[in-house]
């Protein structure tokens, strides 16, 4: 790689800021997001927490440009996220809840898909890059497997690996630990934190898991009924005097069946 190309690549990898500016989104009669606004600093891990159906995934889709806000704008480094050109200027990637892996391609080809389509490297360099990312996520043995042959945890790791092949400046995670056992969930959290520390990627993580938010979030936003209720560190949020947030963060589950009566 020439020095100029290297410099360009390095500058491309600079983390970006995100500003969600009074975004509203409705589907038919249902208002899913209501004047949502917050800022994410470059290199920060920003967690959006909320109960199911609170609009977390829709918010993420608005940030990556898969949905266009009805009102308001999402800015990625002063660029409008709803414009297609923005995503060719700022490298953004998303880890989908389901993984969204290309089921007809092997793990290796899934990872190589983006660089091949954009003709970023020759095949030799590409193989080295894919191998390095596979090794980073302990997926070396899965390279030739099809996604259907992978466990849930492996699929998530492959999805993260595929996103990493884009060398993103902004990485969005949609429920990265859902359907995973606690050990695998902790591994994924560790990967997210490591990626930020080593590559400086700005990360926005959507989750309903308090432990995930506590362990990786620099700041946590609580999204309820389509609105941001509070943004702070997890420790401060736990101490907050808001009954609904308290109930969500420290739920007291009262199950009526005798089997679930507390000792």
């Amino acid at each position: 790689m020439h020095a100029s190309q290297q410099n360009q690549a390095e500058s491309k990898r600079q983390p970006v800021s995100v500003r969600v500016d009074q975004v509203s989104k409705r589907f038919g009669a249902q208002e899913v997001l209501k004047n949502v606004g917050f800022e994410v600093e470059p290199g920060e891990i920003f967690v959006i927490m909320g109960p199911s159906g609170s609009g977390k995934s829709v918010l993420l889709k608005n940030i990556i440009g898969l949905e266009v806000p009805d009102e308001g704008t999402v800015w990625i480094d002063q660029l409008d996220a709803s414009k297609r050109e923005t995503h060719s200027q700022v490298l953004t990637a998303m880890v989908f809840q389901s993984g969204a892996l290309f089921n007809s391609l092997s793990v290796f080809d899934n990872l190589a898909f983006y660089p091949r389509e954009h003709e970023l490297y020759d095949e030799g360099t590409l193989k080295k890059k894919v191998d390095r990312v596979l090794e980073m996520l302990s997926l070396q043995d899965a390279a030739e497997k099809l996604p259907s042959a992978l466990s849930g945890g492996m699929r998530k790791r492959v999805a993260i690996a595929r996103a990493l092949m884009m060398e993103p400046q902004l990485l969005l995670y949609d429920e990265p630990t859902s359907e995973l056992d606690p050990i695998m969930a902790a591994t994924i959290c560790e990967i997210i934190a490591t990626l930020r520390d080593e590559l400086g990627v700005t990360s926005v993580v959507v989750t309903h898991d308090r432990d995930v938010a506590s362990s990786i979030g620099d700041r946590v936003a609580v999204l309820m009924h389509g609105s941001i209720r509070k943004i702070d560190t997890m420790d401060k949020l736990k101490a907050i005097d808001d009954s609904e947030i308290k109930e969500f963060l420290n739920p007291e589950v009262n199950l009526k069946h005798p089997r679930f009566k507390t000792q």
Binding site: G65, F96, E117
Partner: peptide, 8 residues
């Protein structure tokens, strides 16, 4: 959606 996020 994954394709779209990859700018493809």
């Amino acid at each position: 959606d994954a394709l779209t996020t990859m700018n493809i």
